[in-house]
């Protein structure tokens, strides 16, 4: 399990920093690409292109002559735009709650008193990947009522484990000798945590937050199943009505939202991390 690398630690490729050390000895085009993080600034162009394609597709749909359900499902003001706002709202609130719960919990679980349970929590978080979001959602809906709040809490539970795991791994991988040095200079445990461990673990925690955001955007697509609304409504009506145009508009719109937030996460990861790391 030592070298396990999960998609959740660094979920996306909209930035180029994922490749390993360069193999070419001199700086070629590619090395320059990575040094300047051009990938990070190219992603919005790709997303914008996708928006353009979707817009053109939408304009050419000839909705005036389409069946009534299609016309109604694809209305921007009453359907798509409100759904998109719901989507972002659900994902955002769920992510905030996840971070508020998971990061402090991760800090507590890596303190010496709880160090023993750490590996078990990480193991549970690993196999928790097989947890079906669908089932979790329905169980919450059944218990809390068919509404957006229930959906949100289901997503909080679903995204909790990966963020918790990232926080713990991030704190654990802080070099022991750095902590020893801090203690040796007479810093209290609290000071070591706030001055050394947390700043050094920030990149990993940020990556966890980004993962939670992306997961929650994805899960919000399912919120409609228990009356939570969001863009899943459009996708599913496309499937049920057997109307490919509805399904495609819904799906591409969701993809655009997801890619956008993932990119924002990548930007945050780059600019919020402490200098020198």
């Amino acid at each position: 399990m030592t070298d396990q690398i999960t998609h959740r630690e660094m979920p996306t490729g909209t930035e180029g920093s994922e490749a390993g050390p360069p193999v070419v000895p001199r700086e070629g085009f590619f090395a320059m690409w990575r040094r300047l993080q051009l990938g990070l600034w190219l992603a919005p162009l790709g997303i914008l292109a996708l928006v353009g394609v979707l817009y053109m597709y939408y304009q050419n749909l000839d909705l005036a002559n389409a069946v009534r359900q299609t016309r109604s499902a694809l209305q921007w003001e009453t359907k798509l735009w409100p759904q998109m706002l719901q989507h972002v709202q659900i994902a955002f609130v769920a992510t905030v709650v996840v971070v508020i719960v998971a990061v402090p919990l991760g800090i507590i679980l890596t303190r010496p008193a709880f160090r023993r349970v750490g590996p078990y929590v990480v193991a549970v978080a690993n196999s928790g990947q097989a947890l079906p979001a669908y089932g979790l959602l329905v169980l919450f809906g059944a218990a809390m009522g068919m509404n957006r709040t229930a959906a949100m809490w289901a997503f909080v539970v679903y995204a909790l484990l990966p963020v918790l795991r990232n926080t713990m791994v991030g704190l654990d991988q802080v070099d022991r000798s750095v902590i020893e040095a801090g203690r040796g200079m007479g810093m209290t445990r609290m000071l070591v945590l706030t001055r050394i461990e947390l700043p050094l673990a920030v990149p990993v925690i940020l990556a966890g937050v980004r993962v939670a955001m992306v997961l929650n955007i994805g899960m919000a697509t399912l919120a409609f199943l228990i009356g939570g609304g969001a863009l899943g409504v459009t996708i599913y009506s496309g499937i049920e009505l057997n109307q490919n145009s509805v399904l495609i508009v819904g799906a591409v719109l969701v993809a655009i939202v997801a890619l956008t937030f993932d990119w924002l996460g990548a930007v945050a990861e780059r600019y919020l991390r402490p200098r020198g790391i």
Partner: peptide, 8 residues
Amino acid sequence: LTIPSLAM
């Protein structure tokens, strides 16, 4: 992996 599963 970023694209939501239902959309995919």
